[in-house]
Amino acid sequence: MEQVLRRARAAYGRTGLCLSGGAAMGTYHFGIVKGLFDQGILPHILSGTSAGAVVGAFVGTRTDEEIERDLTPETLELRLKR
């Protein structure tokens, strides 16, 4: 039974979040990640490209608490502008 379940689990596979590129439009990814995070369905496997890589790196290097702290428009605005 355990064997069967293990195989079923492997066949079901995992879920990955893929963030695309898109210059300043990639900022939408922050919102997407926040939406997923608040609902508790943020996948553990992230992939990012270009602007998505920035968001991916942001999420990938932070623990849940840090994401909750940093993922606000005010904090991001401070960091995105120069």
Binding site: L46, S47, G48, A57, V59, G60
Partner: peptide, 8 residues
């Protein structure tokens, strides 16, 4: 973090 980050 335990998250798997991939960058293309």
């Amino acid at each position: 973090t335990g998250r798997i980050l991939c960058i293309t």
